[in-house]
Amino acid sequence: MAFSILVCIKAVPDLASGGTLAIAGPWIDETVIGWCMNHYDAYALEAALAIKDAATDITVDALSAGPDRVQNTIRRALAMGADTGIHLAMNAVGRLAPATAALSIARFAKTKRYDLILTGAMSEDEMHGITGPMIAAALDLPCAAAAVEISLDVAGRSLTATCEMEGGMAEIVRLPCPALLTVQTGQRIPRYPSLSNTIRSRRQAIERAVPDETANHTPTVDTLRVSFPQQTTSCQFFEGTRIEKADRLLRLFNDNGWLK
């Protein structure tokens, strides 16, 4: 029985490879940074690919909404093993508000009748954690957040998800498909692209869809500014050579009676 999965991925500023943030206008300077796949979305894609690996007749589509730069992230998803890459071409300069992204993705997904939609639990850059649930709300799908384990019953068209809670607790929920899950990091480390998939991803066309951006009903939330956190003056930075710093730290530890 065929089963289709959509994974929503976001291109975010790549800070892991040494990029640093600079501020320009009300947001960051997007011209001086590289872009990569949101870490949480990579876990969502890995969860989808693991489901695909374990059964037959499962397709995984990877979708990203935004300007042309998101295509590199879509290629990465293809290289990891997604069957189809979809670019929701949205010309919004700068950022897409969660509700805007959710509405466009939902309108697209509705035409494809996916059995399961996966998103990351949040994005590394804006950290809202609401786009996934808003897609589910727009499509009236059952939804669970922060899944760390997914067990799919393809024949029964349902899934059981273990969702992380605070303090080491986890809630287990059952959802009928179609459903949407947001995926938390931790369960399976996202795979590296295989050579054959990387070669395929370079040749494969990315499906392009242009969403109707006109009828967005949600009230706007404007970013006024971003700033670096104020440095509190109470932190004392140890100066000197490495040995001097080590000795000062040991003196502090010793004076407090913590050392053996």
Binding site: L21, D125, M127, V221, T223, R225, S227, F228
Partner: peptide
């Protein structure tokens, strides 16, 4: 609110 894992702070108006 904090964004970028606490590297920046964002102010939004509603």
């Amino acid at each position: 609110r904090a964004v970028f894992g606490g590297k920046l702070r964002e102010s939004v108006s509603v």
